[in-house]
């Protein structure tokens, strides 16, 4: 009898999970921690099943999942000309949608759900905030309009959002320099 060795299912990319906890006594960067990296389907679930659900995190915390080598911040070379598809949730949606949306987001990422445009994806971030949670998919270049809009359409579909609901894409450069709480959308789908 030949026993097949258990072969894990490799992902196209290696991904890193980062955790951010808001501690006002520390610098922003010191609050951001790399938790672990994974590059197989099995290792992804082993991690996912063993960490706190997003809806159970305290306010001010983030999870970020980025391709290995890209830091979850605007300053990273691969992010600085990029932007994000942003999903803003109402307070009630923390209990009904947040965990599902975040899981679907991760499946889009690790499964390379945007076809060849997946190479434009840098990562995804979920912010848990008292005033309303946010989930975003970050892409590398706002000028790659075809990639950005394709990713946006597929992402919206992946989350199961109704066609009439419009989601927006914002350039990090605009978010970083905004003088009020409203950042203009560069694309919408």
């Amino acid at each position: 009898v030949v026993v097949e060795p258990h072969v894990k299912h490799p992902l196209q990319n290696r991904w890193a999970l980062w955790f951010y906890k808001n501690d006002k006594s520390k610098m922003w960067q010191d609050n951001l921690r790399l938790i672990t990296k994974f590059d197989t389907v099995e290792d992804f679930w082993a991690l996912y099943n063993n960490i706190q659900l997003v809806s159970k995190l305290s306010s001010g915390c983030d999870y970020s999942v980025f391709k290995d080598g890209i830091e979850p911040m605007w300053e990273d070379r691969r992010n600085k000309c990029g932007g994000r598809w942003l999903i803003t949730l109402s307070k009630q949606q923390r209990h009904t949608e947040l965990d599902r949306f975040w899981k679907e987001t991760l499946l889009c990422l690790i499964g390379e759900g945007f076809g060849s445009f997946s190479r434009d994806v840098c990562g995804a971030v979920v912010n848990v905030r008292a005033k309303g949670d946010k989930i975003a998919v970050w892409t590398t270049n706002t000028e790659n309009g075809e990639a950005v809009t394709y990713i946006g359409r597929k992402y919206k579909e992946g989350l199961g959002l109704p066609p009439k609901l419009v989601i927006g894409y914002q350039a990090h450069a605009d978010t970083a320099t905004k003088s009020n709480s409203i950042t203009k959308n560069k694309f919408v789908v």
Binding site: F44, I110, G113
Partner: peptide
């Protein structure tokens, strides 16, 4: 080729490790 995995395929593995 690119390693693309469909959602349902990925979901199929979520509890596999816990069952074996």
């Amino acid at each position: 080729g690119k390693r693309q995995y469909k959602r349902d395929f990925l979901l199929g593995f979520q509890f596999m490790a816990a069952c074996t």
